[in-house]
Structures are given as structure tokens and as C-alpha cells.
Amino acid sequence: MANRKVLPLEHDHQDENFLAAVKKIEDGLESLEENVPVYTPDLQFFEHLVAEQKQTMKKKLIRDLAIFTVAALLIVSSVLFMLYQLPAVFFILQGFVTVFIMAYSTVSFVKQVNGT
């Protein structure tokens, strides 16, 4: 019991220091908030910023769509070429992809089970 009387006092002292540090930090941040000037641009500046960003997004979308279309066309045409000109290679590839997907799924599943 005698020991228990000392411990709370130490904690109180620590808490006081902790709260004093928090208070100092809050005061410091408050003085930053109040005294560092921030210039807010006019409405036109923000409108311009939004328009510019929308333009950039549009350009990015067009570029991504173009890349996707070209890649898709390349893949489809090469698969069709293989199917009609090299059917053996086509079926080997089909088999290889199926085995790969099954193996990958099994490994992922086993990892997940072992992990939990």
C-alpha cells in the first residue's frame, strides 16, 4: 500500500509535464495560425486552375484510351493470327495460360491459409 501511494504522484508529475508540453505546442500553433499571413487569390485564379486541371485530365484520358486500344488490337490480331495460321501454337498457349492461372491461384490460396 505504501508503494501505491508514491506511484500516482509520479504519474501526476509526468502528466503535468506532458500537458504542459501539449499546451506549449498548442500555443505555438495558434500563434502561427494568427500571425503568418496567407494571401487568398481571387475567384478567377481558382477557375483557371480548375479549367487547366480538367484539360490535363481530358488529355490523359485520350492518351490512355489510345494506348489501351492499340494494345487490345495488337493482342486480338496476334491471337487471331495464331488461331488461323499456327493452331498448334495457339492451343499450346491456351494450355499454358490455364495451367499458369491454376498454379498461381493455388499458391495464393495456400499462402493465405498458412498466413492465417
Binding site: V38, T40, E47, L49, V50, K54
Partner: peptide, 16 residues
């Protein structure tokens, strides 16, 4: 765009 601009203008000082 105007709504965006107004939102940004209102919140700009807080954000900065």
C-alpha cells in the same frame, strides 16, 4: 467550374 472555384476559395486559407 464556378462551384469548384468557390469551394476552393472558401477553403484555401484553412488549407494553407
Amino acid at each position: 467550374q464556378l462551384a469548384f472555384a468557390m469551394l476552393f476559395k472558401n477553403n484555401y486559407p484553412f488549407l494553407v
